[in-house]
């Protein structure tokens, strides 16, 4: 029971269940959490740190979560906030972060594919709460409305509304706007 002079007190009952359940949630949604944090922090290492810190904060505050069916949405929100804090902190700490999502984007200069990606990331990063995860699950993971609803603990109608709001936001991108102008001409 005691090894190396250290005692480990293993939590009992629902405490064990709680941790195991939360670990499953993290494992099943890691890609989603990463995809939500990445457009904000832009660096893989910083993204991993943000997801880890977000998961830890969420775990510590599980007692405040009212509905366990909403855990994924809740976790995404926490990770997103951690990523935003990290982006702000880096922006303050170093003046090098010129492509921060907090910065206004120059929408007139759109060139190569990578620039388009940057703009798209900017737009995803600035999506309001609840929209980014729907966009990520729909277009990055290829889930359908019902599957997204089940994953996020939302009704199908709520998912539809968020999806179309998110798309409306993303349609403001210049290249896409230009494309429609080209088509019209």
């Amino acid at each position: 029971m005691c090894g190396g002079g250290r005692f480990f007190v293993e939590p009992m009952g629902t405490q064990v269940e709680l941790r195991q359940w939360f670990e499953r949630v993290v494992r099943n949604n890691y890609r989603l959490l990463y995809s939500v944090a990445f457009p904000i922090v832009r660096q893989p290492a910083a993204c991993e740190d943000a997801v880890q810190e977000g998961c830890l904060r969420a775990y510590r505050n599980l007692g405040k979560l009212d509905d366990p069916a909403a855990v994924v949405s809740w976790l995404v929100r926490i990770v997103r906030n951690v990523a935003l804090d990290e982006a702000r902190r880096r922006k303050i700490a170093t003046a090098e972060l010129v492509d921060s999502p907090m910065e206004p984007v120059d929408r007139t200069a759109v060139g190569p594919e990578s620039d388009m990606r940057q703009l798209l990331m900017d737009e995803i990063a600035t999506l309001s709460d609840g929209l980014a995860e729907v966009i990520v699950l729909r277009f990055f993971e290829g889930l359908e409305i019902e599957q997204i609803g089940k994953r996020l603990g939302l009704t199908s109608n709520a998912v539809r509304v968020r999806l179309h709001r998110g798309l409306e936001h993303l349609r403001r991108l210049p290249r896409i706007a230009n494309l429609s102008e080209v088509s019209e001409s």
């Binding site: 890609r31 995809s35 990445f38 990606r117 990331m121 990055f140 991108l173």
Partner: peptide
Amino acid sequence: RDLQLVDDLGAMGGVMNP
């Protein structure tokens, strides 16, 4: 516009996923 947007998002998925 929407077809292009979906294409761009799909391409983004590869970049933003670990």
